Simulated assay, not measured.
Amino acid sequence: MTRAFSQPPRVNAGLFFLRLTGCLLLLYVHGLPKVFHFSEELTRIEDPFGLGPWMSLLPAIFAEVICPLFILTGVFARLACLPIIGVLLVAMLAVHPGWSIAEGQFGWLLLIIFTTLALTGPGQWRLGAVAPAEVPHGAG
C-alpha cells in the first residue's frame, strides 16, 4: 500500500529543484535586500492599504525571508507558501495593477512556482521525511 502513495524519484527531484530555485530567487532578489537595507526600504516600500511602511515591510520580510527558509527545508512548506502567494498577489494586483505581463513576469512566475508548491507539497526530499517502506517484490 505504501508504494501506491510514494512518488518516483524524478518527481521528488523536480519538487526539490522547484523549491530550491524559487526560494533562492525570492530570497536573493526580494527578501535579503529588504533585510540588509531595512531603513532605506522603509522609505521606498509601497503602502497600498494605508497601514504605514512598517506594517507593509514586515509582512513582506516574513513572506520573502522566513517563509522561503521553511520551504527550502520542506517543513510546513504548503503553509509557508500562503504568505508568499498573498504578498505576490498584493504586489501584482494592488501595487502594480498597470503592469503588463512582460513588466510583471518575474512576479507572475514566482506566483506560479509557489502556488504549484502549495498544491503539490514539498515532495519527499525534505527534512524529517520518512523513506517509504520497501514492499517485497510480488507483494502488493
Score class of each variant (00 low, 15 high):
residue 97 P to Q: 02
residue 97 P to L: 03
residue 97 P to A: 00
residue 97 P to N: 03
residue 97 P to S: 01
residue 97 P to K: 00
residue 97 P to F: 01
residue 97 P to C: 01
residue 97 P to Y: 05
residue 98 G to H: 01
residue 98 G to W: 02
residue 98 G to V: 03
residue 99 W to N: 11
residue 99 W to S: 08
residue 99 W to C: 04
residue 99 W to P: 02
residue 99 W to Y: 11
residue 100 S to E: 08
residue 100 S to F: 07
residue 100 S to L: 10
residue 101 I to S: 10
residue 101 I to P: 07
residue 102 A to Q: 13
residue 102 A to M: 12
residue 102 A to V: 15
residue 102 A to K: 13
residue 102 A to F: 12
residue 103 E to S: 10
residue 103 E to A: 12
residue 103 E to I: 00
residue 104 G to S: 03
residue 104 G to K: 01
residue 104 G to D: 06
residue 104 G to N: 07
residue 104 G to W: 01
residue 104 G to R: 00
residue 105 Q to N: 13
residue 105 Q to T: 14
residue 105 Q to S: 13
residue 105 Q to I: 12
residue 106 F to T: 10
residue 106 F to M: 12
residue 107 G to E: 01
residue 107 G to K: 03
residue 107 G to C: 02
residue 107 G to L: 03
residue 107 G to R: 00
residue 107 G to Y: 01
residue 108 W to G: 11
residue 108 W to R: 13
residue 108 W to N: 12
residue 108 W to V: 15
residue 108 W to L: 15
residue 109 L to D: 11
residue 109 L to A: 14
residue 109 L to T: 14
residue 109 L to Q: 12
residue 110 L to E: 10
residue 110 L to K: 01
residue 110 L to T: 06
residue 110 L to H: 04
residue 110 L to F: 11
residue 110 L to A: 10
residue 111 L to F: 10
residue 111 L to S: 09
residue 111 L to P: 03
residue 111 L to H: 03
residue 111 L to N: 05
residue 111 L to Q: 03
residue 112 I to N: 00
residue 112 I to W: 05
residue 112 I to E: 04
residue 112 I to K: 00
residue 113 I to M: 11
residue 113 I to A: 12
residue 113 I to K: 01
residue 114 F to D: 02
residue 114 F to E: 02
residue 114 F to A: 01
residue 114 F to W: 04
residue 114 F to M: 05
residue 114 F to H: 00
residue 114 F to G: 00
residue 115 T to S: 15
residue 115 T to D: 06
residue 115 T to E: 08
residue 115 T to Q: 07
residue 115 T to F: 11
residue 115 T to Y: 09
residue 116 T to I: 10
residue 116 T to W: 09
residue 116 T to M: 10
residue 116 T to N: 05
residue 117 L to Q: 04
residue 117 L to D: 03
residue 117 L to V: 03
residue 117 L to T: 06
residue 118 A to N: 04
residue 118 A to T: 02
residue 118 A to S: 11
residue 118 A to I: 02
residue 119 L to R: 11
residue 119 L to T: 11
residue 120 T to D: 14
residue 120 T to P: 07
residue 120 T to F: 15
residue 120 T to K: 14
residue 120 T to A: 15
residue 121 G to C: 05
residue 121 G to P: 00
residue 121 G to L: 01
residue 122 P to C: 12
residue 122 P to H: 07
residue 122 P to T: 11
residue 122 P to F: 06
residue 122 P to S: 09
residue 122 P to W: 08
residue 123 G to R: 02
residue 123 G to P: 04
residue 123 G to N: 02
residue 124 Q to W: 03
residue 124 Q to D: 12
residue 124 Q to S: 11
residue 124 Q to F: 02
residue 125 W to M: 13
residue 125 W to T: 09
residue 126 R to E: 05
residue 126 R to L: 08
residue 126 R to G: 04
residue 126 R to Q: 12
residue 127 L to F: 14
residue 128 G to P: 09
residue 128 G to F: 13
residue 128 G to L: 13
residue 128 G to K: 14
residue 128 G to C: 12
residue 128 G to W: 14
residue 128 G to V: 14
residue 129 A to W: 00
residue 129 A to Q: 00
residue 129 A to V: 04
residue 129 A to M: 02
residue 129 A to C: 01
residue 130 V to K: 15
residue 130 V to T: 15
residue 130 V to W: 13
residue 131 A to F: 00
residue 131 A to G: 00
residue 132 P to S: 09
residue 132 P to V: 08
residue 132 P to N: 04
residue 132 P to M: 10
residue 132 P to C: 09
